[in-house]
Amino acid sequence: MMIKQLSIFLENKKGRLAQVTSTLAKNKINIRALSLADSADFGVLRLIVNDPDRGATSLKKAGMVVQVTDVIAVEISDKPGGLSRVLHLFDRGAINVEYMYAFVEKIKDKAVVIFKIEQPASAIKILKKEGMPLVRSSVLKGL
């Protein structure tokens, strides 16, 4: 039920992001979602792509430090209160969110949010019990 996210170490320097995107483009890998976290000196780029294994290999070949992390992608309805509902569920279940970001979904009136969770197994259990649909990695492949 987890999907694979690529995390890439970047120095805060000109042209670093462009090198990541052009490497992925050259290898025909499609970016589905991204988030960038940064400090004064460096940043961590997090990516959901259609083919994480090939994505990781091509970025490593280009000399980058890449980590593949498991995250949860939850489909929520794209209207006020959608995200709030999931977060309240996590809160009640004492689930810690390390970070989260949104996903661009073209298919239907749904939004997809990516969560990095401290206790992923319990989070998945809660979401399932509440009937919240999780996005599977096989779905990402087709996008």
Binding site: S7, F9, A37, S39, F42, V44, R46, Y99
Partner: peptide, 15 residues
């Protein structure tokens, strides 16, 4: 220099 073994995708760990 960063390497795969010391890399974490969380800023706080890197800091």
């Amino acid at each position: 220099e960063m390497n795969e073994n010391m890399f974490s995708d969380e800023i706080k760990n890197l800091e």
